[in-house]
Design a binder for these strands. Structure first.
Lengths: 241, 241
DNA sequence: GTTGTTACGTTAGCGAACTAACATCATCTC
DNA sequence: GAGATGATGTTAGTTCGCTAACGTAACAAC
């Protein structure tokens, strides 16, 4: 549960030394019966019309799942990091359904593809695997609902600000620098696709947050988010003057 | 799987006479050990700071789960209809976490509340119950990602239009009238909270869709959505003139 | 070391959506 | 039926964010 360790500390959980996210380690013989595939950067892994009849585990690299609207705007639904499963929504649709989305390698990547029917038979064999699958779904649903919450904010400062808080708590890594600061490796373009705004407006809005000292970044420096300060700023009435 | 019957016809699914959404019928002795609670319209069921240490099943009525931002805008994350479980995100957070959201009765409602620890022991007892739980999560994750997709559209016509398509395929009931038309019982105010726009602008935008014959409604008549026509309109380049 | 590439930075002008306020229509309550 | 309530309809004026275009900084390839 690496990406959620900040929000869901293992120690506080119910009774769950067994509760963990689904990984390739849950598959028998380390994923035998799966096909290992390699993808170049920007290469598509599935397309909207492809059949949803398999589930993937990302071995290395990064994958984004998203769609694009009629005007050609690409939007990111979810980012997958190494070790995580993706394409898992085939579970409730069945192999006759289409993916509807596009998955694309955001960096050179390797993934194992397992047929849905094979995967389902794995699920039958162990309650632990099934429980891990539930846990993964639960975390992703919580994540998706937070994204809905973020996107529901009108106003660029709020939407982008809450997005940064969300990213910092899920994908960020604590920084050796000032306390509260978290490094978030993300480009303005990716932020635009996550916050559903234009890239130039992301730059303008980020500049506004930077001038207030809520984030820190530069042409060479990666992005640092001061989560407590940003949260306080967004929660308060920052509409004055 | 009532609300998804249109999208996920049972016949086409893998091997799943057993695959169904989690309902109170999956709980032993029809939910003994659960507390039945009654709520008046608009009464809160949980608040953001409440502990997430129980799961609910809605017996009758309707519940909305949502949040409100710093400006006081209420936004709806999800709508729960009779028979469905809610508050299930406690599963991955554990009982020490807060709900973060607000659940509110949208109509006079009855619900069964089951302690998380009791519920977890129910999950241990049957693989079918666990599988149903996975299925419910999977459907809700798919639903949440479609909501993200909807909210990522800029422009009121697109956002509201795709929201109506989404609602029609999930909550709508086929109409005896023209084919393709689906009745969707929803107010402009609720649409505003779902699409993250102001209520007046919803009315203006709905009027625009009505003039084009894509939806049909009136002061007394409920809302009918012409799904194929609306989908075609939104998919095409309707930017001309 | 010039060129291509990628990401961040900036601006002008325009169209879109919000706020705030009020009008209309139907239903419910007494 | 006289209000009260709640939902839809409408508008004026202002703010906001988009498009489109271009500028700048860092880096890689050769």
């Amino acid at each position: 549960m690496k990406q959620y360790s900040a929000k869901f500390p293992a120690g506080e959980h119910l009774a769950c030394q067994t509760l963990s996210e689904l990984t390739l380690a849950h598959m028998p013989r380390d994923g035998a019966h799966g096909r290992v595939r390699r993808y170049r950067k920007t290469a598509p892994i599935w397309r909207p019309d492809d059949r949803a009849d398999s589930i993937f585990f990302l071995l290395s690299g990064q994958v984004t799942v998203g769609t694009s609207d009629a005007q050609g705007h690409e939007i990111i639904l979810r980012v997958i990091d190494a070790g995580e499963p993706f394409g898992e929504l085939c579970f409730c649709g069945g192999p006759a359904e289409a993916r509807q989305t596009t998955a694309r390698a955001g960096a050179p990547s390797e993934a194992v593809e397992i047929d849905l029917s094979v995967f389902m038979s794995y699920l039958q064999e162990s309650r632990d695997v099934l429980a891990a699958f539930v846990f993964t779904f639960c975390i992703r649903l919580a994540d998706a609902e937070r994204r809905i919450e973020v996107l529901a904010h009108r106003g660029a400062v709020d939407r982008l600000g809450w997005l940064l808080v969300h990213l910092a708590t899920t994908r960020g890594q604590a920084n050796a620098g000032r306390t509260g600061e978290v490094a978030v490796p993300v480009s303005h373009d990716e932020l635009a696709q996550l916050a559903a705004m234009s890239r130039p407006h992301v730059t303008v809005t980020m500049g506004r947050l930077r001038r207030r000292g809520l984030v820190r970044y530069g042409r060479k420096q990666p992005l640092f988010v001061d989560v407590p300060a940003l949260t306080a700023y967004l929660s308060g009435d920052h509409r004055e003057h």
